[in-house]
Each structure stands twice: as C-alpha cells, then as structure tokens.
Simulated assay, not measured.
Amino acid sequence: MQIRRIVAGVGANGRSQVFTDGVAPRAVEFESAQGFAAALLWATSAGEVLGQGAVADRTGQTGFVPAAGETLLMFVTFPPDAVMMRADFDGAAFGAEFAQKVPGLAERFEQDHPGMHTTESIDYDVVLEGEIMLELDDGAQVLLRRHDVAVQHGNRHAWRNHTDQPATMLFVLMGARRAG
C-alpha cells in the first residue's frame, strides 16, 4: 500500500511550508492474508502544540490505538472475508503477523470472537472504496458503502467484508477515557 503523505506546517520564518512529501513510513501489507493492508499516516500526542519549525512525526513512536487525548489517522484495506475462510488460511500466522505489524490494535482483538474488538477511542470511519459490514456485539449489522461514515464511541465491533472485492477505509481515532 503506497500512500503519498504530505506534511505541511509553519516554518521558522512564520510562513507555510511543506516539511515532507513522500511515501507514508508505516504502511504494511500482510503476507498471511493477501489483500489486507494498513497504513498509519499520522499521530498526535495529547496536548499537541502548534508552532514554528519542524513538525514532529510521531507515527514511528506509537501503536495503532491512541491514548486519551492522542489521535491517529490510518488507512486499512480489508480483503474479502473469503480470504480468511479458505482451508489453507493459517490463523495463527496471521495473528502473529498482525501483532507484529499493527501493535496496540492487535491486542484488542478477541480470540473467541474473530474480528471483534474494542478501543478506548471515538472513531470516524469512512469507506473510500468498496462496501463493508459493521457488526456490533448485539448482532446488528450495518452495511456501509463508498463515502458512508460510521462514528463509534468505544463500542465493541467487527468489520466484515462479505463481497468479492476489497474495501478501503480511512480511520480517524481520537483517544478517550472510558467512564467508570
């Protein structure tokens, strides 16, 4: 997954400038689940301060789930579910690769309910291409198509691609604290 990322900010001279223009540094493709890919495009820390001079790139210093007050921007491409239902699919190899390539998020997935996970974040989930099913723990399933948006508030969910085409999504995660 090659995604061009341009980072702009305010230079030392007080004027707008491009600091970087290139391939997103944390883009991964999975060998154990062909067509599955993720890219962490940007991350901010809690209390991020705008200023002049170089912009801090935190993408290499964070996992794929933000802490309270932090944000993450990422793309994920989901292959059709059939890829992971094939007789030769190695779930253990995929789990190990997922943990290595998508740290922080992989640990949120439930062993007994494949795909189900919960994060302490408010998520803006945008379908860029394809269609995908949002499955909730009460059994509800909501079909999302291109340009549909789901907003989630720390709820347990899974993404299911019942089609024969990949689905690509843009996610903005904003770390939050859970009540109680």
Rank of each mutant, 00 (worst) to 15 (best):
T62I: 11
F75S: 13
Q52S: 09
Q111P: 14
F94I: 12
F94L: 03
D57E: 09
F94E: 02
P103D: 01
F75K: 14
A46T: 07
G53P: 04
G51N: 12
G47R: 07
A68D: 15
A67C: 10
G104R: 04
T44S: 06
F75W: 13
D90L: 12
A46K: 11
G53C: 06
M84Q: 15
E70D: 09
A96P: 10
P114H: 09
V83W: 11
D90G: 06
F64P: 00
D112G: 09
A82R: 09
F64A: 00
L72P: 05
P80E: 07
A99T: 08
G51W: 11
W42N: 00
G53T: 13
A54H: 15
D90K: 10
M85W: 09
A96E: 11
V83Q: 12
V76G: 04
T71E: 09
A99K: 08
F98A: 00
G51R: 10
Q100V: 06
E97H: 08
P79L: 04
A54V: 14
V65Q: 01
G60W: 01
L105A: 08
V76A: 09
E70L: 01
F78P: 03
D112T: 13
A96I: 06
F109D: 03
G63Y: 01
L72Q: 10
A67W: 06
M74D: 03
T59D: 00
A87C: 10
D112S: 15
D88H: 12
A93L: 08
V102S: 00
F89C: 06
F89N: 07
